[in-house]
């Protein structure tokens, strides 16, 4: 599979990354190189192989429904680029 400029632009949109024309060209080239390399996986027949989504074979890990203290509002907001009256402030969101 080969990707073109439009696809790269689409992926960039999905990734919330804005590319300059130059970057777009660079990424088309580099991503195609990588995808070409990845193609080698198709040499393998994996029809009857189970996917490995987890590195651990443990299951059923839970915590109890027990309250723990939240953190002080000051710590919540200290790293925020913009705040207002205890809220995080962002550019207007229109649905």
């Amino acid at each position: 599979m080969k990707i073109d400029k439009d696809q790269v632009e689409n992926i960039a949109k999905l990734s919330r990354i804005r590319l300059t024309e130059l970057e777009r060209e660079m990424f088309v080239h580099q991503l195609n190189n990588i995808l070409f390399y990845i193609e080698k996986l198709n040499k393998l027949d994996t029809e009857n192989v189970a996917p490995m989504a987890y590195t651990s074979d443990v299951s059923n890990v839970f915590r109890e429904d027990k309250l723990k203290p939240s953190i002080p509002l000051q710590d919540v907001l200290i790293n925020a680029p913009a705040t207002k009256s205890g809220f995080f402030k962002v550019p207007k969101v229109i649905e």
């Binding site: 839970f62 109890e64 429904d65 939240s70 509002l73 919540v76």
Partner: peptide, 25 residues
């Protein structure tokens, strides 16, 4: 009051991880 029932986990601070509430499950 806003943002008074939050912690690094539910604020998605870098490095945090979820652990499932058994009762919810």
């Amino acid at each position: 009051e806003p943002n008074t029932q939050v912690c690094p986990v539910c604020l998605a601070m870098p490095g945090v991880l979820p652990v499932m509430n058994k009762k919810a499950f």
